[in-house]
Amino acid sequence: MAAGELRHEIVSLLVHELRNPLGAVLGSVRSLRGAGVRRSARQRHLDVVETNALRIEELLDSLSLVSSADRAEALSLTAAPTPVDVVLRDAAERARKLMGGLLRVSLEVRCDSATIVNVDLRRMVRALAGLAVASMTFASKGGVVAWTSRDAPGRIELDLPDPGIDLHDDHAPRVHDEGFWASRPRAVGLRLTTRAAVLVVRAHGGAVVRTMDPEPVLRVHLPRVP
């Protein structure tokens, strides 16, 4: 595909990805302005506004990160030693907000709070939440997804169980495979989010791999603070 055509296609798909959350925001604001909105409905509309504003922010952040990487610009990080449970719990909280009413599974965090990682907390939280949302968007309803961490030589491993972006196991490896995503243009938002998350993890000296253990897992490796 010619570069101009590809750019047109990407812009078209991004516009589509932005219109859905924008529609939800505008609709909820319109409802909130109406007379006689019940307290429960008011809270629900506010939640819809927050969730969808975060989705728009996520998409724009990811676009900005990926665009910078494509121009070979280094990602600037403000890293500090941080307990891994803080990273995971903050990421889980953001993932819950991003999923909003779409959260079809219960999200739990199981980790050793004594383990310390050197991370840019804001960027890492967004990266992990983005990975989680990408993997859970089309997950079946019900059940519990538990995020866990474990020590490994020189690093820690964070396991984000991957209920699947509506995929068959044979599609692995997935998150790094450009060809796979190219065949699924409607998932461009998820693709951007996932690619941005992988960039952030790599900038921390880590990696994201997909493995079976025995179910599909996105395993994030991060250097451990000795």
Binding site: H8, R19, G23
Partner: peptide, 9 residues
Amino acid sequence: VTGHAIGTH
């Protein structure tokens, strides 16, 4: 009802 506003959609 669609978010696709560009192209031939």
